[in-house]
Design a protein around this nucleic acid. Structure first.
Lengths: 229, 229
DNA sequence: TTAAAAAGCTGACAATTGTCATAGAATCCC
DNA sequence: GGGATTCTATGACAATTGTCAGCTTTTTAA
C-alpha cells in the first residue's frame, strides 16, 4: 500500500520533517516501498547505498561483523528511524549491516533527493546534524558501558533499554523479542554467557520468561545492578 | 600571540574552512586564545559549553567517567580538531571531559558565531555533518573492537593507532607519550593489565621502552596480533 | 506430521582479566 | 637537594568470562 510522504506520520519522528512541501513531493515521487521479512537484510556491511531507508514498521538491527566471526549489534532501529544516512552523507560504503528482526516495511529514498535537500535547505541539514549528534553521544555511552561494566550489568541494562524503547505486551513481556544470540550480540558477550545470566536473573526473581519471551519482574533491582550495587 | 582566523592554517583541517570570509571575520573578532597546561581541563563532563574549542597545539583526551570511578578515553584530539561541537549543536551539557595531555593552545569560539553560521551557510553545516558522520563511524568501530577483541589485541591496536596518528620522534619512540594509566583508559582495561602487557610485548620484541616512552619495534607482528593470529 | 535444523540450556574447564599488596623508580615541589 | 608523592612494575590470587561438549526444546520445512 503506497502513500504520499507529505501525509506520512512517520515523518514526524525523523529529520524529514524539516523538508519543505516541494522537497517532500519530490521525495515522495522518487521513493519506493519495500517489505523485508524477518531475518532478511535491508543492506549489508560494505554495500554502497544509493539512498536511505525510512522505517515504517518493524525493527532492524544494525550490526558489524568482527574478525572473530561474531556480530556486534550497535543499534536497534524502529518506526520513524532513518537508516543509511551516514553512508550517504560521507559518500562511503556503509560500515554496518541492517537486518530485519521483525517483518518490516521500509521506504527507500534515493540519495539524490537527500543530497539535493542537504545542499539547499539548512534547516534540514541542521536537523540531520542534531540527530547525528545525538547518535554520537549514545555511541560514547555504549563505549563506556561496554568497557567499564560487567556482562551482568550490561545484561540488566539491555533489558531495561528494551522495556523503555519498545515497551511491553499485554502479558508483561518485552514487546521486542530477540533471540538469545541477538541479546548476546547487543551486550557483547558469548551466547552461553547471556543464557546463563538470564537463568540467574530468573532464579533471583528479576525477570520471568516464556519461551524466548522475557518479562521484567523487578525493575528496581535491575537498575541497582546497573549502577553497581 | 594572537592572530586572525582568516590566516590560520589550522582551519584547513576542520569544518571552519567552509565559512565565508565575512563569517570568519566575525569568528575572529569574537574568539579568544587560551593556554592550557598539561593535566588541566579545557572543560569537564556536565559543563554547559558556551562555544567550541579549536586545537592549535598539543593533544587533548576526551573522556567519560564511569560509575566505578575509571575514566574511559573516547578520543584523542590534536591540532586542527574542534572540541565541543556536539554539545553546542544539541544544546545539551557535554557528555565528555577534555583534558590536556600536553601543554596546549586552544582558541575559544563563542557558540553564537557557530549557531549563526549553521543556520545560514548550508556548506558549513554540511561540512560539520560530514565530520560528525566520520566520528560516528569511528565510534562504531571502537564499540566492536572493545567488545570483540582481547585486551592484548586492543593494546597492540592502540600502539599502532598512536604511531599512525601522532607519529614517531627522532629516536623511534611514539611522539605522543601517554602515562600507563592513560593507555589503560584508552584500551579500557586495568592499569596493571596494561603494564603487564607492555612488559610482555617488550619481552617478545614487539616494542621497546625508555621510561614512559614506547617505541614500536615489530609493526607487522603487532598488526597480525590485532587481526587475531 | 515428522524429520531435520536451529535455538536454548547446562556442566566442566580453561583462559582472560581484575584486584590487592608491595616495592622500586621517577618526578615534583618546597 | 631531599622528602613526599605519583608512577611503574610484578607477584599472588580471585573473579569473570569464554569455549567446548552434550543434551533438550522449539522451530522450520518437506
Amino acid at each position: 500500500m503506497e502513500s504520499r510522504c507529505e501525509n506520512c506520520i512517520i515523518r514526524q519522528f525523523n529529520s524529514l520533517r524539516a523538508m519543505s512541501k516541494e522537497e517532500l513531493k519530490k521525495v515522495s515521487d522518487s521513493k519506493t516501498t519495500k517489505m523485508v521479512k524477518k531475518g532478511e537484510p535491508i543492506f549489508e556491511e560494505g554495500d554502497k547505498l544509493n539512498g536511505v531507508y525510512c522505517v515504517r514498521n518493524g525493527v532492524s538491527k544494525l550490526s558489524k561483523l568482527s574478525a572473530n566471526g561474531k556480530d556486534q549489534i550497535v543499534k536497534l532501529a524502529s518506526k520513524g528511524e532513518v537508516l543509511g544516512q551516514r553512508s550517504v552523507i560521507s559518500q562511503e560504503s556503509t560500515n554496518l549491516s541492517a537486518i530485519a528482526v521483525d517483518d518490516m516495511e521500509v521506504c527507500f529514498i534515493p540519495k539524490e533527493s537527500i543530497n539535493n535537500t542537504l545542499q539547499k535547505n539548512p534547516n534540514f541539514t541542521l536537523e540531520v546534524l542534531r540527530h547525528m549528534a545525538h547518535d554520537l553521544k549514545e555511541a560514547d555511552d555504549v563505549i563506556v558501558n561496554i568497557s567499564q561494566k560487567t556482562v551482568k550489568q550490561r545484561m540488566a541494562e539491555a533489558f531495561l533499554y528494551l522495556k523503555n524503547n519498545f515497551g511491553e505486551d499485554a502479558d508483561g513481556f518485552l514487546a521486542l523479542t530477540l533471540s538469545r544470540e541477538d541479546i548476546s550480540n547487543v551486550v557483547g558477550t558469548a551466547t552461553e554467557s547471556a543464557i546463563r545470566i538470564i537463568s540467574e536473573f530468573k532464579k533471583k526473581g528479576l525477570i520471568h520468561t516464556s519461551g524466548k519471551k522475557i518479562g521484567i519482574k523487578d525493575e528496581r533491582k535491575l537498575l541497582e545492578m546497573v549502577e553497581g550495587f
